[in-house]
Design a protein around this nucleic acid. Structure first.
Length: 462
DNA sequence: TTTAGGG
DNA sequence: CCCTAAA
């Protein structure tokens, strides 16, 4: 199965490659280009020799319009004209791609690169996905070309990392690699500085987490939903791949994009969070962060929010508490850290829950790793622990729902996400079969049946 | 490294 | 969701 998937994606890659040979394969890049021109005020892209561009007609345009709206909606005071817009797009969307990639290409070693690449995509992409995913999905399935349409709506410049990696995979773009190098040497310093400033602003304006991210996340959620339902993301692969291609093309054409590219590439979501945290510390005198310096390349950031740079966080906390005892600002610090504790929580979809329940039914309670591997292989953000936690919560909520069903029905407000009856039933059954310690408030005999009054005889195995 | 349990 | 301890 794994290999199957792999080969599949490879195939897709090949397709992409082939296409690229014949034609620039940058469908819809056209739109993109206009946009870039806009931003850079230095249009000279003749790259747009696309045959298939006509295929997308209205829809494509529509998408872009939406995108614009979206961007506008997020003008937070910092300049969107040159970099702002870009950076907005730069975040959030990546996670999306990353997720997908993580699921699909976890065989690849250079996750870092992927990650980097992901850091760049666009929130707008998410946005689009969010609003039109269903259609999009089918579209994508039709082939890389279609995929590109969508992708091209993401940001134009993209990480060197990916192109490098692509080479190893399918030799997608050599030119892009070269360009990248060039860019790095050219715009390195400036890019960094700008990036920092950007982040300063960002942080200042929205605390550690900007709305952008939120948007991105929610869209991701939707996507996940769909993705989840059939556990197949191949279309997305093509999407991503073609996206990369587009990116490289653009890169080749535009050197200027690189500046932004650099700036975008660096900071990760995680980084922003860390950064804000550190800045707080800086306030209280310890640990100084030098923005001018190379971005700390967010520690072990191979997964979107799953990164868990434990050590760093711990260290920060440590220092925080240290400074706490020194200055009297305890409370501020405390609350702040407490606030951003729940960094990346992703809502569980019904599909996921059902899947989880299925998995538990199959493999039993406690084999979280197995369940994760077999049923949640595609969702990188669900760790076995998450599954377990979710199960715990499910047990709790389901039992609650069972007990006060009437009350819940009378006060629907209290039932936020009611959880379909059948699911609850299944959970209860499973709970009966696999007692999860500590969860059932009932002090019943270990593996006995739960309050279910239906007389299913349960036998003790001992 | 995975599970269990607590926060 | 995060963290830690124990296995």
């Amino acid at each position: 199965m794994e290999t199957d998937r792999k080969s599949h994606s490879m195939k897709k890659l090949d397709d992409v490659k082939c296409q690229r040979v014949d034609q620039p394969v940058v469908p819809g890049l056209d739109d993109e280009v206009t946009e870039v021109e806009h931003l850079l005020a230095e249009p000279k892209i003749e790259h747009v020799s696309v045959d298939g561009i006509l295929c997308f007609g209205n829809e494509n345009i529509e998408k872009h319009l939406k995108m614009e709206d979206f961007s506008c909606a997020f003008d937070y005071g910092w300049k969107i004209s040159a970099g702002g817009l870009d950076s907005i797009r730069g975040r959030g969307g990546d996670d999306l791609k990353l997720e997908v990639l993580d699921g699909l290409l976890d065989e690849v070693d250079e996750v870092d690169d992927i990650d980097a690449a992901h850091d760049l995509s666009g929130a707008c992409e998410d946005f689009l996905l969010d609003s039109e995913f269903p259609e999009k999905l089918s579209e994508l399935d039709c082939g890389p070309r279609e995929g590109s349409t969508l992708c091209n709506s993401s940001s134009e410049s993209h990480s060197p990392g990916f192109s490098g990696r692509s080479n190893s995979v399918g030799g997608i773009s050599e030119s892009s690699t070269a360009t990248v190098r060039e860019s790095n040497s050219e715009n390195g310093g400036l890019g960094k500085r700008v990036g920092c400033d950007l982040h300063h602003n960002f942080r200042r304006k929205h605390g550690c987490q900007g709305p952008v991210m939120d948007v991105g996340r929610s869209s991701i959620e939707h996507m996940q939903d769909l993705d989840e339902s059939d556990d197949d993301e191949k279309p997305l692969v093509s999407l991503i791949l073609s996206n990369q291609k587009v990116k490289s093309s653009v890169k080749v054409t535009k050197g200027d994009t690189l500046l932004r590219q650099k700036r975008l590439r660096k900071p990760t979501r995680r980084y922003i969070e860390e950064f804000s945290r550190n800045s707080n510390m800086e306030e209280s005198k310890s640990h100084k962060i030098q923005p001018q310096e190379e971005f700390p390349q967010v520690p072990s950031e191979s997964q979107p929010w799953r990164g868990r740079p434990k050590k760093i966080v711990l260290k920060s906390d440590y220092e925080l508490s240290a400074s706490e005892s020194e200055d009297g600002r305890k409370r501020t610090k405390r609350s702040k850290t407490a606030c951003d504790r729940r960094k990346h929580q992703k809502m569980w979809t019904l599909a996921e829950v059902i899947k989880l329940v299925d998995g538990i039914a199959k493999y039993g309670v406690g084999r979280w790793t197995d369940i994760k591997k077999l049923l949640f292989a595609s969702s990188a953000y669900r760790t076995p622990v998450d599954l377990r936690d979710k199960w715990r919560n499910l047990l709790r909520s389901s039992s609650a729902q069972e007990n006060n069903r009437r009350e819940v029905e009378t006060h629907p407000k209290h039932a936020v996400r009611p959880l379909p009856k059948p699911v609850v039933r299944r959970i209860c059954e499973l709970a009966a079969i696999h007692p999860y310690p500590k969860v059932s408030s009932v002090n019943y005999v270990p593996s006995s049946e739960q309050p279910t009054t239906k007389g299913t005889p349960v036998y003790y195995s001992a």
